[in-house]
């Protein structure tokens, strides 16, 4: 099942799922991107490689979402999609590298919705079951 937005009185909960950690991370990024701008209005004209780390899968998820937000501001770009390129765990630290595709912000063309201020540890969950991985956190809007 793809990402889902969960009711939260002030902000919004984001729930991502996938067969693997990589799939669930990508699902979560797609969910957050969809909240901000209609990805169908963004063309994959350029790409950016970004990295994130965490002491566990939950904090890795939050750091990845926040890295996407930082890249949006620094590169002044909106994103169409994400591909996870590598995931590893060394000395107790998880590390992920991924490639974002998208293009420079053009407000005449991109249909914007809510900005996301940050991904938080609020309601953070990272659980593995027979169905795969489930990741959750609260996004501050």
């Amino acid at each position: 099942m793809p990402w889902e937005l969960l009711d939260h009185q002030a902000d919004v909960g984001l729930q991502a799922t996938g067969n693997s950690i990589e799939d669930a991370l990508a699902d979560g990024v797609r969910g957050m991107l969809s909240l901000m701008v209609d990805p169908a209005t963004v063309q994959p004209q350029e790409h950016w490689v970004i990295e994130a780390r965490g002491s566990d899968v939950g904090s890795l998820f939050v750091d990845l979402l926040n890295s996407v937000l930082a890249t949006k501001d620094i590169e002044n770009a909106f994103f169409h999609d994400v591909v996870i390129e590598s995931l590893d765990q060394q000395d107790g630290t998880w590390h992920v590298s991924c490639r974002l595709s998208g293009e420079a912000i053009d407000l005449a063309k991109h249909e914007v919705d809510s900005d996301v201020k940050a991904a938080t540890y609020g309601g953070l969950r990272a659980e593995q079951s027979d169905d795969g991985w489930l990741l959750r956190c609260v996004l501050d809007l």
């Binding site: 002491s55 904090s59 939050v62 750091d63 926040n66 937000l69 930082a70 501001d73 201020k117 940050a118 991904a119 938080t120 540890y121 501050d140």
Partner: peptide, 17 residues
Amino acid sequence: RALGHQIGTDYLQTLEA
């Protein structure tokens, strides 16, 4: 704006440790 958001993000990890 984004500067405040990034300070929060950065120090969430610092304060967790």
